[in-house]
C-alpha cells in the first residue's frame, strides 16, 4: 500500500471516530462545537503518558480515552445548563480554553508541541474505527439510544414518557468525550507529533459539519459524512483553494436540498438492505421528504 493511500486511510478512520464522538451528543440533540478540545485532551494525554511517563501504548491510549471521557462527564454538568446558540458558544469556548491551556503549559511543550515516539500502525487504527462504528450502531439500538433519539426529536414528549433527560445527556457527553479522546490518541501515535495549534476552532467546525452533513438521525450519517468530507477534498486536490470553494458550495447546497443530512431515517426506510450497502442512492435519486 502506498504511503499516500495509507495516510489518507488513517486520517479517514481518525475522522470517523472523531465524528462519532460528536454524533453521539448530536443524536441526543446537543451541538458540540468544542470537539477539537476533547480530541486535544486525548492526544496530549497519550503523548504525555507514553513520551514523558514512559508507559506502553496499550496502556496510554485507553487511559487517555478515559481521561477525555471523565472530562466530558465533568464538563457536561455546567454545559447542559445552556441551550441552543448558548450551548454552541459554551462548547466552542471550552475548545478554545483547552487549546489556550496546552499552548501555555511547559509540561506539554507549549507552542513547540510534543514528539510522540511510540508509533501505531494502520491496522490498529482501522480496527478501532470499526469497533467504534459497531459500538455506535449498537448504542443507537439500545434503550439509551432510543432515549437519545427521543430527546432530539421532541424533548417535552420524551420527558412525558419518563426519559431521564439529565442522565441521558450526561451519558451522551461522556461517551462522546471518550470517542473524541480516542481519535486524538490515535492521531498522536500515528502522526508522531502533536501541537496545540492543530486542535483549533476550524477543526471543531469541520467535524461538526461531518456529522450534520452526513445526518445526525442515524449512525450511518457520520460514516457517510466522514467519507464525503475526507475523500471529496482528496478527489478535488487538483484545484488548490478551488476545491474548498466547491466544498463550501456543496455544504450550502446540501443544507438547501437535504437539511437533515445525506442519510435520514426516511431514506433508510425507502431503501432495501441490499441497496443500503451500495451507499449510492443517497446522492439525490431518492425522493425528497
Amino acid at each position: 500500500m502506498s504511503g499516500y493511500l495509507s495516510a489518507t486511510l488513517a486520517i479517514l478512520c481518525i475522522n470517523l471516530i472523531f465524528a462519532y464522538g460528536i454524533f453521539v451528543t448530536a443524536a441526543a440533540g446537543q451541538i458540540n462545537l468544542g470537539g477539537a478540545g476533547f480530541q486535544a485532551i486525548g492526544a496530549y494525554g497519550t503523548a504525555w503518558l507514553s513520551a514523558s511517563a514512559g508507559l506502553p501504548v496499550s496502556f496510554s491510549i485507553p487511559a487517555a480515552t478515559l481521561i477525555a471521557a471523565l472530562i466530558g462527564f465533568l464538563i457536561s454538568f455546567p454545559v447542559l445548563r445552556t441551550r441552543g446558540v448558548y450551548m454552541v458558544l459554551a462548547t466552542f469556548a471550552f475548545g478554545e480554553v483547552v487549546a489556550g491551556f496546552l499552548l501555555r503549559s511547559p509540561v506539554f511543550g507549549g507552542a513547540m508541541g510534543m514528539v510522540v515516539p511510540a508509533h501505531i500502525e494502520l491496522p490498529a487504527i482501522i480496527v478501532s474505527a470499526v469497533v467504534v462504528t459497531l459500538l455506535t450502531f449498537y448504542l443507537m439500538a439500545t434503550r439509551l439510544g432510543l432515549a437519545m433519539r427521543s430527546l432530539n426529536d421532541d424533548e417535552e414528549a420524551a420527558i412525558v414518557m419518563g426519559v431521564n433527560v439529565r442522565a441521558v445527556q450526561v451519558a451522551a457527553f461522556t461517551i462522546g468525550g471518550a470517542f473524541c479522546g480516542l481519535s486524538g490518541a490515535l492521531y498522536a501515535h500515528n502522526f508522531a507529533f502533536v501541537e496545540a495549534q492543530y486542535f483549533n476552532s476550524l477543526l471543531s467546525i469541520y467535524v461538526l459539519l461531518f456529522v450534520l452533513i452526513g445526518g445526525a438521525q442515524t449512525a450511518w450519517g457520520p460514516l457517510v459524512g466522514s467519507l464525503f468530507f475526507t475523500l471529496l477534498p482528496e478527489l478535488l486536490r487538483i484545484g488548490g483553494s478551488a476545491r474548498y470553494v466547491v466544498f463550501g458550495v456543496a455544504i450550502v447546497l446540501m443544507m438547501m436540498l437535504r437539511p437533515e443530512g445525506i442519510v435520514t431515517r426516511d431514506l433508510l426506510r425507502r431503501l432495501s438492505p441490499r441497496q443500503l450497502f451500495n451507499r449510492r442512492p443517497a446522492s439525490g435519486s431518492a425522493p425528497r421528504d
Partner: peptide, 18 residues
C-alpha cells in the same frame, strides 16, 4: 433551525478560499 448556521460555515469556506 441549525441550518443557517451550517450554511454560514459553508459560505465562510467559499469566501475565504475565493
Amino acid at each position: 433551525h441549525a441550518i443557517p448556521l451550517v450554511s454560514s460555515l459553508g459560505f465562510l469556506l467559499i469566501f475565504e478560499n475565493l
